[in-house]
């Protein structure tokens, strides 16, 4: 089915496998529209959601996907864990695996930690976000949503706007979209764009209006409020004036443009509420596609042999 045992990131991930995941996700999307939204595909499969960092939507999305597939799930979060008692990452993961599990969905603040986990346990590992490195399931649901809207990925022009430097969403989207033949332009304050990002085959512009004119869709990243006024971004009004997706800005461009956001949004900061709620956004489609994408990924990695039984 898929070439790689784990889903650690989209850098170097085969394009045909991304396509398989998206195609399968559309099948599961139909399940989500049925009155009884549950299939027996992963009955008897045990999955642990190992969250070393706070998350609401990603964790709920994974949990729902697991329940819709009839998998057994256990949740673990760092705040309630023995990690606080000084137990090591290695011991925690080995202990959990010793309880006979099949897969681990992990979020961790440190880049590379899902790869590190592969040294200690044999289960399938799915990266649910590792620090500022990758967030592959988010990029897959973003691509699925673009596919749903445009019927293709090849040749699409995507602008990614905001704090690229600290964004795992941006890096996974860049790798995935490049592999699938889309064109990517990054836009944001120069000090939040990594110096060497051009090596990844993307363009950069600090002029948001130019990017809006060029792009078919914008993926708007959250600008963390903690960064405001702490050297990286001088103020909210300065940021909004240069990089905010404001309703005035969108009105001035007399063109159709699709707006995406991985959430959680800061309304009135990187995006105006009226834009977020407007017709051109597909933000809530992304959320629903997130469940379908994660069902697809879990199904393909945790023993699903065919799409029968869907």
């Amino acid at each position: 089915m898929l070439e790689q045992k784990h889903l650690l990131g989209l850098e170097g991930y085969p394009g045909k496998d991304i396509q398989t995941i998206i195609d399968t996700a559309f099948n599961f999307r139909e399940v989500l529209d049925r009155p009884i939204k549950k299939v027996p595909s992963l009955q008897g499969v045990t999955i642990v959601n190992l969250f070393f960092e706070n998350s609401t939507r990603t964790r709920i999305s994974f949990e729902l996907a697991q329940k819709r597939l009839s998998a057994d799930t256990v949740n673990f979060s760092a705040s309630s864990s023995s990690l606080k008692k000084g137990e090591s990452f290695k011991d925690t993961s080995q202990n959990i695996e010793a309880m006979k599990i099949d897969a681990v969905v992990m979020r961790h603040p440190t880049p590379g930690s899902p790869k590190h986990l592969t040294n200690f346990i044999d289960s399938v590992i799915i990266n649910a976000g590792d620090g500022t490195h990758e967030h592959p399931t988010q990029a897959i649901l973003d691509m699925m949503s673009l596919y749903e809207k445009f019927g293709k990925l090849k040749g699409l022009r995507i602008g990614i706007v905001g704090d690229i430097m600290h964004s795992r969403v941006a890096l996974s989207n860049i790798h995935g979209l490049k592999t699938m033949g889309a064109k990517v332009t990054l836009c944001g304050p120069p000090n939040l764009i990594p110096e060497h990002i051009n090596d990844l085959g993307v363009s950069y512009s600090n002029n948001l209006d130019e990017v809006i004119e060029w792009a078919d869709a914008l993926n708007v990243l959250r600008i963390q409020k903690e960064r405001m006024g702490r050297g990286l971004v001088p103020s909210t009004r300065e940021y909004r004036s240069f990089f905010g997706i404001t309703s005035d800005r969108i009105k001035n461009h007399k063109k159709e443009i699709v707006i995406m956001h991985p959430g959680p949004m800061n309304r009135g900061v990187e995006i105006d509420g009226s834009v977020a709620d407007g017709d051109q956004t597909i933000i809530l489609d992304q959320v629903l596609n997130g469940v379908a994408s994660r069902m697809s990924i879990l199904y393909l990695l945790c023993g699903g042999k065919t799409v029968e039984g869907v």
């Binding site: 850098e11 880049p111 590379g112 590792d130 620090g131 500022t132 490195h133 990758e134 795992r168 890096l171 990594p194 110096e195 060497h196 990002i197 090596d199 990844l200």
Partner: peptide
């Protein structure tokens, strides 16, 4: 080292 590899790995 800050460079293309740190960018790819997401490491500071």
């Amino acid at each position: 080292n800050e460079g293309k590899i740190s960018t790819r790995l997401g490491l500071p």
